[in-house]
Simulated scan of single mutants.
Amino acid sequence: MVELKFVAPSWDEIYSKVIDLSIKIRNSGCKFDCIVGIARGGWIVARLLSDLLDIADIGSLRIEFYKDVGTHGRSPIVTQPVSIDVRGKSVLAVDDVSDTGSSLVKAVQHLIDMGARSVIVATIHVKPWTVFIPDFYIEVTDAWIIYPWESYETIKSLTSKWIRDGLSVSEIKSRLLSIGMRRDVVERILPIVLVDLKVGFDGD
Rank of each mutant, 00 (worst) to 15 (best):
K156V: 14
A93F: 00
D135M: 05
M1R: 14
I25Q: 00
S28E: 00
S102F: 12
I58P: 00
G73P: 05
S10D: 05
L167H: 08
S102W: 12
R62T: 12
I155A: 09
I192E: 13
T159E: 03
K156W: 10
I44R: 05
L177S: 04
R175H: 09
A39P: 04
L111V: 00
S178G: 06
V193E: 10
I25Y: 01
Q109N: 15
A56R: 12
R117Q: 10
D99H: 06
I44K: 01
R87N: 06
T100I: 06
V2F: 14
D12T: 11
I179A: 08
S157A: 15
I155S: 12
A143R: 14
E171H: 11
A46N: 05
L21C: 00
P9W: 11
I179R: 13
T141R: 01
D142Y: 00
A56S: 13
I146H: 02
T123V: 02
A107N: 03
I63Q: 04
V7C: 03
K156M: 13
I58R: 08
R26A: 12
I124S: 08
I120M: 13
M181V: 11
L53Q: 00
V121D: 06
V185I: 15
D184G: 02
V140F: 04
V86E: 00
V121A: 09
V195W: 10
K24M: 11
E13N: 00
T71N: 06
V193D: 14
V36M: 09
K67G: 11
R74D: 07
P76A: 07
V140G: 01
L4C: 07
D20R: 15
